[in-house]
Write a protein that binds this DNA or RNA. Structure first.
Length: 482
RNA sequence: GCUCUCGUGGUGUAGUCCGGCCCAUCAUCUCGGCCUUUCGAGCCGAAUACCCGGGUUCAAAUCCCGGCGAGAGCACCA
């Protein structure tokens, strides 16, 4: 019996229905009109971690023809970098994400005062001058501070006087019996005497995160809130405010947390290091700030694509530089020019009877981009990367890429024919000595030389053959990925 | 400790709601081979996963129960 005869009896693979369904993120509920927001605190420029929320919000804005609001949350006068207001907006620009509206919370303090008066008036909030520990201890024991039980009129006048003097906080009442201690009574406003970078000393009573967010989300008409699941409890707190004010809640979507390995994303830490000149600035190529990554040549599309691809499940995920790099390479490879870079150059002299011409395309798959040409005469210097030179055997045949074959003899390279020989080693080389330093994100710097035609490529991303993709900047090259 | 989430290859993801087209999708990574004047790209192939244990069912990644594991929050930060 041949295998063909057996065929009908073998467990047949069921024909698979062609899955033509294009992969996309899950749809949003109530998507008739979609208003989203990206709401960072202006404590520094944006980094890789911020781009997820940005990418997802932007994705749904585009998908449903909605609106995206950039809201700068600067209600803590102590944690503001006054340059960040601008930096964040330029980071958005770089990503080609357009905010339909820019809102700054410190411009809206009166609004927060107005709404809290309503909540106090209906008994949903109280003022207390209790000190932090005492108040928290009582809460943990499910007990109320005496101030909590005062009449709304009293609370209201306490609030008005807090606007001008004295110490105290304004607290939203929740359920003191809530089994989750994190959800029992939370502070809505507090006193900060420090001057604010934009408002100076105009206000002394500042709203806290959960309160300001809820008020703004409502007043800005936010329909969908996309955030990490570290905000799960915050969402529950914010719902209390919606409840007191009789507002309809937006849709809340919580996605899992991302851990980004080997990457320092703490803005405050980075700022310190910059101050100590450990880093050259926010755009240091060792940083995962958008500015640092842009400097290495990452493309904005890569960020958006990566996060759209990562979905918004509630599982925690690990960021993969490998996958990220692969996506970036996929985007840039087809139109990135090639160039020879020689690290730790070793000098050789070429011996040839005829004049030679380097004939190297700017891109191997795109002849239409033209080529680099150069005449090489006998006696010219040829620089070879040290690691290649060390592997040379006396008399071995190597190919100088896009030039000719040579036989190695001491520090001479003797011409040995034009047609490429199968199996011979192919190496890149330079005739001129144009120094360039290659900066790796791990901090190593490799000194080398590059072909003499980089001036018109300044600021561009190119591929150093056999090394990887880099972005050129003057006499520096920043390593992107392989 | 309390409260709340979530467990599909190394990584990310599809499928889980409404059990059978799933001997489980796609991408990346890894390993072969082809191709190539780059260790890039391209092409072909291989390997690797439904956390564990019970139960329901003709049938379970999908439903139920119990373990285990991972993460988050518990600030007068955002």
């Amino acid at each position: 019996m041949s295998s063909e005869d057996l065929e009908p009896y073998l467990p047949s693979k069921k024909p698979k229905v062609e899955k033509i369904v294009e992969k996309q993120l899950p749809p949003l509920n109530n998507s008739d009109s979609v208003v989203l927001r990206f709401a960072p605190g202006p404590s520094g420029p944006l980094h890789l971690g911020h781009t997820r929320a940005l990418a997802l919000n932007n994705y749904y804005k585009k998908r449903y023809g909605g609106k995206l609001i950039l809201r700068l949350e600067d209600t803590n006068p102590n944690a503001i970098d006054s340059e960040a207001y601008e930096m964040i907006q330029s980071d958005l620009n770089w990503l080609n994400i357009e905010a339909d509206e820019v809102i700054i919370q410190s411009d809206r303090i009166e609004l927060y005062y107005q709404e809290i008066r309503k909540i106090i008036a209906e008994g949903g909030a109280y003022v207390t001058s209790s000190d932090a520990e005492e108040w928290r201890d009582l809460k943990n024991q499910k007990k109320a501070h005496p101030d909590r039980e005062r009449l709304p009129e009293v609370q209201l006048s306490e609030f008005e006087s807090l606007l001008v003097e004295g110490k105290g906080i304004v607290v939203i009442k929740t359920d003191l019996e809530d089994p989750n201690p994190a959800l029992r009574d939370f502070v809505a406003l507090r006193v900060v005497e420090e001057p604010h970078p934009r408002q100076s000393t105009k206000y002394r009573l500042w709203p806290l995160y959960n309160y300001a967010v809820a008020v703004d989300d409502y007043h800005l008409g936010i329909t969908h809130v996309l955030r990490g699941k570290d905000h799960l409890n915050n969402t529950l707190k914010q719902k209390w405010i919606y409840k007191y004010l009789g507002w309809d809640e937006p849709e809340y979507i919580h996605y899992g947390l991302v851990s980004i390995p080997n990457t320092n994303l703490k803005t405050s830490k980075i700022r310190e290091s910059i101050a100590e000149s450990e880093f050259s600035g926010w755009d240091d190529c060792r940083l995962a700030t958008l500015k640092g990554l842009a400097r290495r040549g990452y493309r904005p599309e890569t960020f958006l694509k990566y996060w759209e691809n990562s979905g918004l499940k509630e599982v925690d995920i690990k960021f993969s530089w490998q996958n990220f790099d692969a996506m970036n390479k996929d985007i840039i490879d087809s139109d990135t020019r090639r160039l020879f870079f020689v690290s730790d150059p070793v000098e050789f002299t070429i011996e040839t009877d005829d004049k030679l011409v380097k004939d190297a395309p700017w891109h191997p798959d795109k002849p239409e981009l033209g080529k680099r040409e150069e005449e090489i005469v006998s006696g010219s210097n040829i620089f070879i990367q040290k690691s290649d030179a060390e592997a040379f055997q006396e008399g071995s045949l190597v190919r100088l890429k896009n030039l000719c074959n040579v036989i190695v003899s001491k520090n001479k390279l003797n011409f040995e024919g034009m047609p490429p020989k199968k199996g011979s080693q192919i190496i890149q080389w330079c005739s001129s000595h144009t120094p360039i330093d290659l900066f790796y994100p791990d901090g190593t710097i490799v000194e080398g030389i590059v072909e003499d035609n980089i001036s018109e490529l300044d600021g561009e991303t190119v591929q150093f053959e056999r090394v990887g993709f880099v972005r050129l900047e003057g006499k520096k090259a920043f390593f992107l990925h392989r």
